[in-house]
């Protein structure tokens, strides 16, 4: 009977509506993703400001979709090679990530400041899907969710061939930086609502 009560309690807790907006979904279509390759011969950098992402604070799940052609390079030829030869972006127009994060539940995120989370999931690049795990930061601020992550991938893991002649120009692992400002989904725009987060910020 004790067990039954415990189960009932768990079910009730799970089913109970949780307070605040901390459990809602947050989304952006203009996330920033940049990558860096550093080698003795050459530094390569590209930026993308059209990454789409959605994070569900309730379930701890997140998904990203990055249009590969939107990466902008300093050198025009590099950008052409990136799309034509390395990423084959006509064939694989998007890079995606689906996974979950842990370490910051609704209660933790209610506290102002940024909180470290562990992120784990499937990254699909150049048609190859691999499991990756990394650390990230989440922060609820003015009703928006700020997301930050820094991790690296090896082009070789994603079947991206690098010809012998430029092998010294391209790093074996490429660092990727993700920086998003997500708005709450289905909630009034930041500032006009009366959520506890907005108010506590305004009182500062």
């Amino acid at each position: 009977m004790k067990q039954f009560l415990r189960l009932l309690l768990v079910v009730l807790v799970l089913a109970a509506p949780r307070p605040g907006r901390a459990q809602g979904k947050f989304m952006t279509k203009a996330g920033r993703v940049s990558f860096f390759s550093t080698s003795i011969l050459e530094d390569i950098e590209a930026r993308n400001t059209a990454a789409a992402a959605v994070l569900d604070l309730g379930s701890g799940q997140l998904a990203f979709a990055v249009p590969v052609k939107e990466f902008a390079f300093k050198r025009t030829l590099m950008q052409e090679h990136f799309n034509e030869n390395y990423m084959e972006s006509d064939k694989y127009p998007r890079a995606t990530f689906t996974g979950r994060f842990s370490g910051a539940d609704a209660a933790v995120l209610g506290v102002p400041g940024s909180h470290q989370v562990q992120v784990e999931g499937e990254l699909t690049l150049h048609g190859v899907t691999r499991h990756i795990a990394t650390a990230g930061m989440l922060e609820l601020k003015s009703g928006q969710l700020l997301v930050f992550a820094f991790f690296s991938v090896a082009p070789a893991d994603y079947a991206i061939e690098i010809p012998l002649l430029v092998r010294e120009n391209i790093a074996k692992t490429v660092s990727i930086r993700v920086s998003l400002t997500c708005d709450a989904v289905g909630a009034p725009p930041a500032g006009s609502g009366s959520s506890p987060v907005t108010r506590s910020n305004a009182s500062n």
Binding site: M27, A53, V54, D56, Q61, L62, A63, A65, T98, G99
Partner: peptide
Amino acid sequence: AAHAQDDLLGQLEKTAEPPKREVVA
């Protein structure tokens, strides 16, 4: 949970911008 992940990506696709003009490089 597994279903929700697919849903999240599906949701992204649904809200994705309509295809825009792209220059053929």
